[in-house]
Design a protein around this nucleic acid. Sequence first.
DNA 1: TTGATACTTAACTCTATGCTTAACTTTTCA
DNA 2: TGAAAAGTTAAGCATAGAGTTAAGTATCAA
Lengths: 112, 112
Amino acid sequence: MLNFSQPLDLMFQALADPSRRVMVERLSRGPASVSELAKPLSMSLPAVYQHLQVLEASGLVCTEKTGRVRTCRLEAKALRSAEQWISERRALWERRLDKLGDILTESDGKPD
Amino acid sequence: MLNFSQPLDLMFQALADPSRRVMVERLSRGPASVSELAKPLSMSLPAVYQHLQVLEASGLVCTEKTGRVRTCRLEAKALRSAEQWISERRALWERRLDKLGDILTESDGKPD
DNA sequence: TTGATACTTAACTCTATGCTTAACTTTTCA
DNA sequence: TGAAAAGTTAAGCATAGAGTTAAGTATCAA
């Protein structure tokens, strides 16, 4: 399928990489510079930088450069929308399971 | 970074593809066969099948074959754990923002 | 003004992903 | 029994993704 570059694609794609999740994890405890984000990761700075660009493109992280330091911070709104997509599907499915359970209980074990 | 194949990697990776999200969406409304999942997607059945395997490997979907039909259903527990990861990070970050807001309000505009 | 710091860009390699078509393998049922 | 239905496997191809090194650029501090 062609890449529609929809927000959810980019967000889930961004979250799929463990290094990027480490970066998000770090940023959930407060803003950080590029080098700070790189510190716990065993890879070159350009690699970290590329991950950062993926996170920024997804909207999960926004950055701002002041002097020679780029400061990165989490974007709660984007996190919320990814969370919400999952939540809605799960709710739909669980509601269905509940209803099914009720029917089974009411009818004392009769199948669907 | 090496592929640790951690559950979250696989789940977010699985959700990153729009075709797979269409499949999850369909399954949130109830179980379905492989061909039913394939119906709205403009790709070959083997392609759909491969997507299904990605979803199954991630734990988001489980399947069971009866006769010649494979029935697929959502796994609420897995959805919950992906949702929770995001939720926890967001909560941490938003709590931080709130505290910061409080400090700014109490001190009447003094910086951090 | 010069060396160090903190990114940033470019070019390249290697692997993983997302398809495809073709060829099987069950099951089902007329 | 034998064709149709539903799924499965295999092989191959094209593109995207994750990493590298090397070479910039822009700030800062002395």
